[in-house]
Write a protein that binds this DNA or RNA. Structure first.
Length: 960
RNA sequence: GGGCGUAUAGCUCAGUGGUAGAGCACUGUAUUGACAUUGCAGGGGUCGGAAGUUCAACUCUUCCUACGCCCACCA
C-alpha cells in the first residue's frame, strides 16, 4: 500500500519528522555486532559555535560517507561532540559579563568556571541542533565534550606521560603574548598582516670617546618598534663588516636610559640593510632573543619593559624614567603611547635622524620616519598585535612527536587526499617548532603540575600523587594555567572511544593475499569486496568477538576536515595517535576547501557576505543544500557559493517527487526484491542495465572520494535516464485500454518499482530526507531507508534489448530535431518508410512499436520504399552499428528548401569529418605508431561519415 | 624568499594523449492527466600565452602572464 503524496514537495514538512524518527529509533547506529566497523570522528565544533557554511560542507561530506557505508552493511559509527574551545568560550562568557557591567575578575576562578559550565548547559546545544537540521546521522547517544570527565582523564594521562618521557617541559623563552586576552598563544594562532607603519632611524652614541672609521661618534640604528629601545641590551653588527670592526666589543650609551650596552658581532646583522647595525632587544623580539643568547645573555637576565597588558613597566636595572612608566606600548584610544613618547624624547635630545624624501614636485620633505608597510603579527582570536614576551610556559617537543606521522604519510600508512597537500604537510612537520601548550586562562584543562615553595615542579595525574612525589608536609601550589584547546582535541579519535579507561587491543582482519603484512587496513571498496553479506562473513568471526568500542573503532577509517585545520588538528591527532596508541589515527585524510562567497571572496562577518546555511535550508531544503555541497566538491578545491545551483537541486528533488507520484498513479509501488527481477521487455532490461551502470559509477567515485562525480552520476541517471526516457517508454503499458494484468504491465510495475527503489537507495546518502519520505510512500517497509541495503544489481541483460532502446532513443531525438528544424509541429504524427531496415530495426519495430510510435510520433512504420515525392530523411543508430534510414514523405507539409539546408548542413559536417579522418588514415606514421584501437576507431568513423556523405548527397539529389 | 594551486561556453565548474561536457543563463517552441520548481529543440568555446615531446596535445614537459592561498621574513 502506498501513501498518496501531496502534489508539491515541501521539504520543511518532512525533514524534522524524519530526523526525529531516525534518532529515536536508533537509525544512526543500528546494532550490527558482526559487521565490519566503519568509523569517522567529527571535527568537534566549538561549543560556542553556530553552523556556518563551512560546517555544512564538512558535515555533509561526512554524512554522505557514513550513510553510504551504513547502507553497505558496515557497523558505521560517526562520533560526534563539541570542543570546549578555551579562548573562544571564555571570551563569549566574558563578553556577556561585560554587557552587565560585570567582569571575570569579580569572581573566583571556581565561580567563573562554574558560570561557563552554566552557559554551556544553556547555550552549548545550538550547533548540535543545527547539525541535526542538516540531516547528519551522528551517534548522538554517545555525544562527547572535550571537558567530559573521561576526556579529562585522557588529557591528564597524556600530559603526565609526555612529561615523564621528556616530551613536555617548562621553559623560559619568548612567547607570542596576546595582551588583550593576556595569555600566551601558539605560533599557529598568530596571523601575519601587513599594515602601514613607520621606520625610524636613531643615533646611539659610542661610549668612551670611540669613533667609527668615518669619524662618526655614534652608530645609526633603525627600527619599526622604537618603544622597545628602553630594553635594548646590545647593538649587533655583522662580523665581517669593516665599518664597525673597530668598535666590536666596545659600548654605546643608550639614549634615554643611559644604559651602557655592548656592540656585538652577529651574523643576524645584514650589512646590506640600512646602516648594517641593528639594535638588540632580546626580551621583545624573536630574532633578538637568539642574538642575545648567542651574545651570552641568559633568558633570566633579559630585560623586560612591558607588563601583561603591554604597558611600560620598570626594567630590572631600574633605568626607565618615570615619565614612561605605565604608558601603553603604542597609541591607543587616541592617547599617545610609549612609542610616541620615546620618539619625541629622542627627537628632543637630538638622537633622531630625520627621514628625507621628495614630494611630487621634487621638493625635499623632512619627516621623523619613513612610511613603510610592516608585516605585523596579530592574535587570531584577540585581534590585537602580538607582543613577544618573556615568560615561563609549557612546551611540547613537537619535533620528536612529528617523526612517526611524517613516516606514516611517507610510507602510505596515511594517505592524504588530495595528494598535493602532502608537500605542505611535510614542509610544516619537518620544520616544526616547540608547541607552547599553556594558556593563561581559567576555562580549560588545568595543567597537572604542582610547585613547591622553591619552584620545584611535580607533575602527576592527581594532587595526591604530586604530594607523594614532593613528600608529606611540602606545601604545593597547582599551576594556574590551562592547556591549549588543541591539546585535548588531538586525542579525539581515541579518547571519544573510551581511552584510557578501556584498554586498546588492536583488532585486525587477517591479511589477505599479497597484501599480507601491510599495515594499512583501509576497507576496500572494490567490486569483489562489495557483494555484501556473503563476502564479509569471512571476516565476521573476527569482528564478532566481544571487543570494546575502542578496539573496534580505532583506528578510525577516514578523517574529513578543512585544510585550514591541517596543522592545528589533523597533524596533532597524528602525533597523539602515534604517541598514545602507537598507531596512525586513520589511514586516510580527506581535505576539503573553503566555501567562498559568490564573488570568490572569503566569507567574513566584517564583509557582511556570510551565507547562512540554515537560511538556505529554510528556502530550498536540507537535501538541496547537501546535494549542492556534494556536486561542487571536487577534491580540495574551494567552492564558490551559487544559490542558483542550490535552487537547481531543489528542482531535482521536486522532479524525483513527481516521478514517484507518476509511479504511484500507475500502480508502481515498492519492490519485493533487492535483486533485479527477471525482465523480458526491452525497456525493462535496459533500465536494469542502466542501474548497474550508475551504481558502479557511484561506487568507484566514492572509493576515490569524488563526491562530485558520485552526485552527478545519480543526478544524470535519475533525471536524464529514468525520468526522461524510461518513464516515457513504459507509459504505453499503462495507457487506457492496456490490460493491467497482462505480462507487460505486471513485469513493468515490478521493474519500475525496483528501479525507483534503487534510485532512492543510491540517492539517500546525498538527499536523505526526500528519499526516506518517498521510500515509505511506496509501500509499507520492514525497515527505514537509512538502514536499507546498497544495490547489488547483478542481472543478465541482453545487448539486443539495450541496443533496441538506444536505437529508439536515437530515432526519437533525431526525429524531434528534424521536425524542429523544418518547422513541423512537434506533435504531428508522421508516416515513415524504411527501404532497408537492419535486423535490429526490424526486431525493434516488431517488439516496441508502441513506444516508437508514441515517442517518435510516427504512425506504424512501413517497411519498403516510400512513394515518390518530397521527403525528409532521419536516421537511427545504436552503438557503433550502421545507421538505419527512415524516409518521411512530407508532401504539402515540408518546406523543401528547409530540408535541403538541413541536409546540406549535415553533409558539410560529415564531409569535414571524413576528410580529416581520411588524412589521418593516409598518414603512414599514424597507421604504424598509433594504438590499434585508435586506428580501428578512425576506420570505423571514416566508414560512417563516408556513408553519411553518400546518403546525404543522394537525399539532396532526390529533392532536386 | 620558499611552497602550493587555478586559468576550459556569458557565469560557476567537470574532464580525457585521438576532432570538448554539466548546471545556470540565453534563443526558439510546447500546456486537456508525474512535473512550468516542466518538456522538446537550439546557439555559444582558436580549452590564458609561447616553445617543445608525439603519428596526434585542451590533456605531458619547459618558460611566460594573471589571479589566489600557505609558510618564512626584511631589524
Amino acid at each position: 500500500m502506498s501513501t498518496e503524496l501531496p502534489t508539491t514537495f515541501n521539504p520543511a514538512d518532512i525533514e524534522t519528522r524524519w530526523y526525529a524518527h531516525w534518532e529515536s529509533s536508533g537509525g544512526f547506529r543500528p546494532e550490527r555486532p558482526d559487521a565490519e566497523p566503519f568509523t569517522i570522528v567529527n571535527p568537534p565544533p566549538n561549543v560556542t559555535g553556530s553552523l556556518h557554511i563551512g560546517h555544512a560542507l564538512d558535515n555533509t561530506l561526512q554524512d554522505i560517507v557514513i550513510r553510504y557505508e551504513r547502507m553497505r552493511g558496515k557497523d558505521a559509527l560517526w562520533v560526534v561532540g563539541t570542543d570546549h574551545a578555551g579562548i573562544a568560550t571564555q571570551m563569549v562568557v566574558e563578553r556577556q559579563m561585560e554587557e552587565r557591567q560585570d567582569k571575570r575578575t569579580n569572581y573566583s576562578r571556581e565561580q567563573f568556571v562554574e558560570k561557563v559550565w552554566e552557559w554551556k548547559r544553556e547555550s552549548g546545544g545550538t550547533i548540535t541542533n543545527q547539525l541535526r537540521r542538516l540531516g547528519c546521522s551522528m551517534d548522538w547517544s554517545r555525544e562527547q565534550f572535550t571537558m567530559d570527565e573521561h576526556f579529562t582523564k585522557a588529557v591528564l594521562k597524556t600530559f603526565v606521560d609526555l612529561y615523564n618521557d621528556g616530551l613536555i617541559y617548562r621553559d623560559k623563552r619568548l612567547v607570542n603574548w596576546d595582551p588583550k586576552l593576556k595569555t600566551a598563544i601558539s605560533d599557529l594562532e598568530v596571523e601575519q598582516q601587513t599594515i602601514p607603519g613607520s621606520f625610524w632611524h636613531f643615533k646611539y652614541p659610542l661610549a668612551d670617546g670611540e669613533t667609527l672609521a668615518d669619524g662618526r661618534n655614534y652608530i645609526e640604528v633603525a627600527t619599526t618598534r622604537p618603544e622597545t629601545m628602553l630594553a635594548d641590551m646590545a647593538v649587533a653588527v655583522h662580523p665581517t663588516d669593516e665599518r664597525y670592526a673597530s668598535v666590536v666589543g666596545k659600548h654605546v650609551v643608550l639614549p634615554i636610559t643611559g644604559r651602557r650596552i655592548p656592540i656585538v658581532a652577529d651574523e643576524h646583522a645584514d650589512p646590506e640593510l640600512g646602516s648594517g647595525a641593528v639594535k638588540i632587544t632580546p626580551g621583545h623580539d624573536f630574532n633578538d632573543f637568539e642574538v642575545g643568547k648567542r651574545a651570552g645573555i641568559a633568558a633570566g637576565e633579559m630585560l623586560n619593559m612591558l607588563d601583561g597588558d603591554a604597558n611600560v613597566c620598570q626594567t630590572a636595572d631600574g633605568l626607565v624614567p618615570d615619565e614612561f612608566i605605565g604608558l601603553h606600548r603604542f597609541r591607543r584610544d587616541k592617547i599617545d603611547g610609549a612609542r610616541e613618547a620615546v620618539v619625541e624624547r629622542l627627537k628632543a635630545d637630538g638622537f633622531l635622524i630625520p627621514h628625507v624624501s621628495k614630494n611630487k614636485k621634487g621638493e625635499e620633505v623632512i619627516s621623523d620616519a619613513e612610511p613603510r608597510q610592516i608585516a605585523t603579527p596579530f592574535g587570531d582570536r584577540g585581534g590585537v598585535v602580538i607582543e613577544p614576551w618573556l615568560t615561563d610556559q609549557w612546551y611540547v617537543d613537537a619535533e620528536k612527536l612529528a617523526a612517526k606521522p611524517i613516516q606514516d604519510v611517507r610510507d602510505g600508512t596515511i594517505e592524504i587526499v588530495p595528494k598535493s597537500w602532502e608537500k605542505t604537510f611535510f614542509n610544516w612537520m619537518e620544520n616544526i617548532q616547540p608547541w607552547c601548550v599553556s594558556r593563561q586562562l581559567w576555562w580549560g584543562h588545568r595543567i597537572p603540575a604542582w610547585f613547591d615553595a622553591d619552584g620545584n615542579v611535580f607533575v602527576a595525574e592527581s594532587e595526591e600523587e604530586a604530594q607523594a612525589q614532593a613528600g608529606t608536609g611540602v606545601q604545593l601550589t597547582r599551576d594556574q594555567d590551562v592547556l591549549d584547546t588543541w591539546f585535548s582535541s588531538a586525542l579525539w579519535p581515541f579518547a571519544t572511544l573510551g581511552w584510557p579507561e578501556t584498554e586498546y587491543t588492536p583488532v585486525r582482519p587477517e591479511p589477505v593475499g599479497s597484501e599480507a603484512g601491510t599495515k594499512s587496513q583501509r576497507p576496500s571498496f572494490t567490486s569483489e569486496e562489495k557483494s555484501g553479506a556473503s563476502t564479509s562473513s569471512a571476516r565476521t568471526g573476527e569482528w564478532a568477538e566481544n571487543r570494546d568500542l575502542l578496539s573496534k573503532h580505532f583506528p578510525n577509517n577516514l578523517l574529513i576536515s578543512g585544510f585550514d585545520i591541517l596543522f592545528f588538528w589533523d597533524a596533532r591527532m597524528m602525533m597523539m595517535g602515534q604517541y598514545n596508541m602507537g598507531e596512525a589515527p586513520w589511514p586516510r585524510l580527506y581535505l576539503h576547501g573553503l566555501v567562498r562567497a559568490a564573488d570568490g571572496a572569503k566569507m567574513s562577518k566584517s564583509k557582511g557576505n556570510v551565507v547562512d546555511p540554515l537560511g538556505l535550508i529554510d528556502q530550498y531544503g536540507a537535501d538541496a543544500l547537501r546535494f549542492f555541497m556534494a556536486a561542487m566538491e571536487s577534491q580540495g578545491r574551494d567552492i564558490k557559493m551559487d544559490e542558483k545551483r542550490v535552487e537547481g537541486y531543489r528542482n531535482f528533488a521536486t522532479k524525483l517527487w513527481n516521478a514517484t507520484r507518476f509511479c504511484q498513479s500507475s500502480g508502481i509501488g515498492k519492490s519485493a526484491t533487492i535483486k533485479a527481477p527477471q525482465a523480458h521487455l526491452a525497456a525493462n532490461q535496459w533500465i536494469i542495465g542502466e542501474v548497474q551502470q550508475v551504481c558502479s559509477e557511484i561506487e568507484s567515485a566514492m572509493e576515490d572520494l569524488r563526491f562530485d562525480a558520485a552526485a552527478n552520476a545519480i543526478y544524470q541517471f535519475t533525471w536524464s535516464k529514468f525520468c526522461d526516457w524510461y518513464l516515457e517508454l513504459i507509459k504505453p503499458v499503462f495507457a487506457d485500454g492496456a490490460d493491467p494484468e497482462a505480462m507487460p504491465a505486471v513485469e513493468t510495475r515490478e521493474i519500475a518499482g525496483w528501479a525507483l527503489d534503487q534510485i532512492l537507495v543510491m540517492l539517500h546518502p546525498f538527499m536523505p530526507f526526500i528519499t526516506e519520505e518517498l521510500w515509505h510512500s511506496q509501500g509499507s517497509r520492514q525497515y527505514d531507508l537509512i538502514t536499507a541495503s546498497w544495490p547489488n544489481p547483478r542481472a543478465e541483460v541482453s545487448k539486443d534489448a539495450t541496443d533496441a532502446i538506444d536505437w529508439v532513443i536515437d530515432l526519437t531525438t533525431n526525429m524531434r530535431s528534424a521536425k524542429n528544424e523544418l518547422g513541423i509541429p512537434p506533435g504531428a504524427k508522421l508516416a515513415a518508410f524504411m527501404p532497408s531496415p537492419s535486423s535490429l530495426a526490424s526486431s525493434t519495430i516488431e517488439r516496441s512499436s508502441a513506444a516508437i510510435e508514441r515517442l517518435a510520433r510516427l504512425t506504424p512504420v512501413t517497411i519498403g520504399e516510400a512513394p515518390a515525392g518530397p521527403a525528409m530523411q532521419v536516421t537511427a543508430q545504436a552503438g557503433s552499428g550502421a545507421a538505419d534510414v527512415f524516409v518521411v514523405p512530407l508532401e504539402g507539409i515540408i518546406d523543401i528548401d528547409a530540408e535541403k539546408s538541413r541536409l546540406q548542413k549535415a553533409l558539410s559536417a560529415s564531409q569535414k569529418e571524413a576528410k580529416s579522418l581520411e588524412g589521418r588514415l593516409g598518414n603512414a606514421n599514424f597507421i604504424e605508431r598509433a594504438k590499434p584501437e585508435a586506428v580501428e576507431k578512425a576506420r570505423e568513423d571514416f566508414a560512417h561519415h563516408s556513408g553519411e556523405v553518400e546518403r546525404l548527397k543522394g537525399a539532396l539529389e532526390r529533392l532536386g
